[in-house]
Amino acid sequence: MKKRWPGFLLIAVLLIAWEAASANKWIDQVTFPTVSTIFRTWYANMISGELINQLSSSLGRIFAGYFLAVFVAVSLGLLMGTVSIIYRMLEPITEFIRPIPSSAYIPVSILILGIGNEMKIFVVFLACTFPILLNTYGGVRGIDPVLIDTGRTFGISRLRSLRQIIMPAALPSILTGMRISLGIALIVAVVAEMIAGNSGIGYFILDMQRIFRIPEMFAGIFTLGLLGYIINFCFLKVEAHFLRWRGTSVEN
């Protein structure tokens, strides 16, 4: 934490500059309300439960889609990584679908699933699947043959090899995919909420902008920033715990 102070200092300086610029009307006060106004609004909306409600409906979708993607993509990735016929069958189609920006799935998903929760969860799920899938089968296929042969010489079963060699060996790679997808989940959920529906933090931000309650809009954006920071922080802690054997973790 000690080494991070220059970063926090810069944030403080920028906020103060914003506050001064807005208070002295160097910039348009309607478009850029003072930081203190935004924080007061944020606090009021947190207390009233408005932001918490919006946030919890967003978080529900994000995590439902995300964990569904983790489960499906890790399972499929392990299968693709270990069974070469399945890899050769699925790899081209994966490479074809993967470059499509995930927001492009939204119109199709609305057609099929409507504008409710199912659509948003599905879009998050789809967007999160590919980074995890790619990193899982990439990780499995990148395992050194010596490690696999070590298992063989000890005569372990395929199932034990999967559990005790392949999965732990691919774990760093799987976690990388999971970290990438976590950021994507947040983005896609917010975009989907802005396009359709009437709840969630994405909806809240767009709605406030439309009815010209700019401090509320910024309060929503600030909430998203905070949320992203907290989620990432927690993820890094979990990752460092699971990869403590690598000796490269920040903890040392």
Binding site: D144, V146, L147, D149, T150, T153, Q164, R246
Partner: peptide
């Protein structure tokens, strides 16, 4: 039991 030359790759680092 086969003992590999590349012990760093044969040991289970986790």
């Amino acid at each position: 039991i086969y003992v590999f030359q590349q012990y760093t790759k044969s040991i289970l680092p986790w």
